[in-house]
Design a protein around this nucleic acid. Structure first.
Lengths: 129, 129
DNA sequence: TCAACATATGAACATATACTCATATGTTTC
DNA sequence: GAAACATATGAGTATATGTTCATATGTTGA
């Protein structure tokens, strides 16, 4: 049989814990949106773009030059960032300037850096993924 | 020609802005680790696992049951979470209990939820990715 | 030691995604 | 309007990744 895998069909599950956990779970839509948001943060090119924009706006070719990535690749990534409301644009003549669109970008990056700072300190033991 | 794409080879680039941005960029290793960390947050199954563990530890089959995902899939995902130091384990007999390993999990999820809360409010106009 | 159970893991497969290339769109200057 | 330039985008491709399936590992009780 194979309905829901039926692992630990009796004793092991803790129904009261499951109910408690269920009660404070965000709704499905939020969970999906959350994953989508962090997906945007999950590529180092996009992270580098956001870091580059941390202090001031830059045009597309500035970013491409700064990161050593092709204009096309940058443009594709900027599109994703914009779709997630993480950057905004301002046109000035032929150039388009991008800047961060949300204070959460800073907070999220900071929390992330904080985490990797902590984990890299004294816990190199289980790097064997 | 094709060396570095040579977009805006002269006038457009703003060298002083590029230098400024360069100066406050995290080092390459951190940027890579950051992306790796957020990659873990970029899947809704893993997000759901972390939310489920927000208040209390759960054993593997609890999580599988709660999320309606196979034991194997959960186990694979837990491995990633553990490798990123986001969850920790405690064995009790045949069961293995997982719990959050880091206060950053809460902060990161909260910032993320905050962001999607803001963007979903009145800006449905550019959902056309 | 063996059966039963909970969890972990390797291989395989289907899908997602980041880049390149070619080209389109939009802007300025002549 | 045409040329030059900055940016955007569609198609194609190589790689990454999440799940399933089969099976291994580890624990308990007989």
């Amino acid at each position: 049989m194979k309905e829901q895998d039926l692992c630990c069909e009796e004793a092991c599950v803790h129904p009261e814990h499951i109910e408690a956990a269920k009660s404070h779970m965000p709704d499905e839509d939020s969970l999906f949106s959350l994953a989508e948001l962090f997906k945007v943060f999950s590529d180092s090119t996009r992270i580098r773009i956001m870091c580059a924009l941390a202090d001031e706006e830059l045009c597309v070719c500035d970013i491409a030059d700064l990161l050593g990535v092709s204009q096309s690749a940058i443009s594709h990534q900027l599109r994703l960032l914009r779709a997630s409301h993480l950057v905004r644009t301002r046109r000035e003549g032929k150039s388009v300037f991008y800047s961060l669109d949300d204070h959460h970008v800073h907070s999220i990056l900071r929390e992330g850096l904080d985490h990797i700072g902590h984990t890299s300190k004294g816990r190199e033991e289980n790097e064997n993924v």
